[in-house]
């Protein structure tokens, strides 16, 4: 697993929110740090897994699947990405599905 990051918190928030909006069609005004993935953003376990796959591909990071089980809010996602993001890689283009 990779740790530390050259990405700023703002960049992480931007990248994650872009994915949530384009990939999962969640309105941007709902993308607040305290929003819970399941109750507030309408996601479920399949979405959570696919979100992780997209994040790993988009940001060239690797997250242990077990860590996903502890994620509850969007802020938890920002934190998880911040911990494992690789400094040298630039974000890739968006993918929707």
């Amino acid at each position: 697993m990779n740790t530390t990051s050259s990405m700023s918190n703002e960049q992480i928030v931007s990248q994650v929110n872009d994915l949530m909006h384009t990939g999962f069609e969640i309105p941007r005004d709902k993308l607040v740090p305290t929003a819970t993935l399941f109750d507030d953003l309408g996601m479920d376990s399949l979405d959570a897994i696919d979100m992780l796959v997209h994040l790993e591909e988009k940001l060239q990071i690797k997250v242990e699947g077990e860590r996903l089980k502890k994620v509850r809010t969007l802020a938890d996602i920002y934190g998880l990405v911040g911990e494992v993001a690789i400094p040298s890689l630039q974000p890739q283009s968006e993918q929707s599905h």
């Binding site: 399949l46 897994i49 696919d50 796959v53 790993e56 591909e57 599905h97």
Partner: peptide
Amino acid sequence: LFEKGGPEGQLST
């Protein structure tokens, strides 16, 4: 699957 040499990166859906 062939590129990755396994199921890494496959979407659940």
